[in-house]
């Protein structure tokens, strides 16, 4: 088609795309090649210096990245298992099915930051109700100040907050499955457990992959929970990539360096999520 005004009609969409996506990315790349900080604000050019610093002289970034990988993979696995179990439960005809379906969605409807404040109160070491109850058994875990336990506190809150989303995706998937294979499986001699392993689970594979990838992307952005719950502490033991980039960029105003970390992070995430999606597809769909 040769239509000379076509760019005119493309412009509105293109403008939005350039404005919110292409320009920021290009600007981040340019920014990452500059030494912009609070002493020398401005787009000067210092070459790959930021990247060299990042790859050779900043273990804190890589530690926070591996911590993030651990946190997001663990939370997503837990969310998937719990979400699948809950969805499977209310998929069958049980009493108060509708009530449970709504109940399981409640955490998702709350405001994450406020809920995290409430969780922080729950887990407060000396004043919180959790340790008050646990005192019956004579234990008082340091939920927020022990470097190891704090990670699991973050996981608990994340799982609580976002399992409903997984539940919703998986329930929608289960409800869309054809009924016939289940009839056939029962007659073919599959007990309920085998029916789940050999029919329900494989039929759910495409939906599972989608749900897991969506949640992985979401979970890697984890920031508010950490910020409110522990502020990355104790020390840096719950600090994640986005939190570290936030500290470098918006607290210490090392804009150029934060930009180089953001861009590196973006590339790593794109590559690893692609690999994860491929591996999951191969594993679950056998294709």
């Amino acid at each position: 088609m040769n239509f000379k005004h076509k760019y005119f009609f493309l412009f509105p969409g293109l403008f939005v795309l350039i404005g919110i996506l292409i320009f920021p990315i290009i600007f981040v790349v340019r920014l990452s090649l500059s030494g912009w900080n609070s002493y020398n604000p401005g787009l000067d050019y210092i070459g790959l210096e930021n990247y060299i610093r990042l790859f050779t002289d900043d273990p804190r970034f890589w530690e926070s990245f591996f911590r993030l990988s651990f946190l997001s993979v663990t939370t997503v696995i837990l969310q998937y298992v719990i979400g699948f179990a809950l969805a499977h439960m209310v998929w069958k005809d049980i009493k108060f099915k509708r009530f449970f379906r709504v109940l399981f969605l409640v955490p998702m409807m709350t405001t994450p930051v406020i809920m995290t404040v409430i969780w922080r109160t729950f887990f407060h070491e000396s004043l919180g109700p959790v340790n008050d109850m646990l005192s019956v058994f004579g234990v008082a875990p340091k939920w927020l100040t022990d470097p190891v336990i704090a990670k699991f506190t973050v996981i608990i809150v994340e799982v609580w907050q976002w399992t409903p989303f997984m539940f919703l995706l998986l329930l929608a998937g289960l409800l869309s499955l054809p009924k016939e294979p289940f009839l056939a499986a029962a007659i073919d001699g599959a007990s309920p457990v085998r029916k789940f392993i050999y029919v329900t689970f494989p039929l759910m594979a495409p939906i599972s992959i989608g749900a897991i990838i969506i949640r992985l992307i979401e979970a890697s952005k984890i920031m508010d929970t950490v910020y409110v719950l522990t502020s990355g502490g104790p020390g840096t033991s719950t600090e994640t990539s986005s939190f570290y980039i936030f500290i470098k960029g918006l607290r210490e105003f090392q804009m150029g360096y934060a930009a180089s970390m953001s861009f590196t992070y973006l590339i790593i995430m794109i590559i690893s999520l692609t690999i994860i999606a491929k591996v999951l597809t191969k594993l679950l769909l056998k294709e």
Binding site: P181, I187, D188, G189
Partner: peptide
């Protein structure tokens, strides 16, 4: 699943 029964339905039911 413990009855030794086989069934063919009017819809063609297989495992997709």
């Amino acid at each position: 699943w413990e009855r030794n029964v086989a069934m063919v339905y009017q819809q063609f039911i297989n495992y997709p």
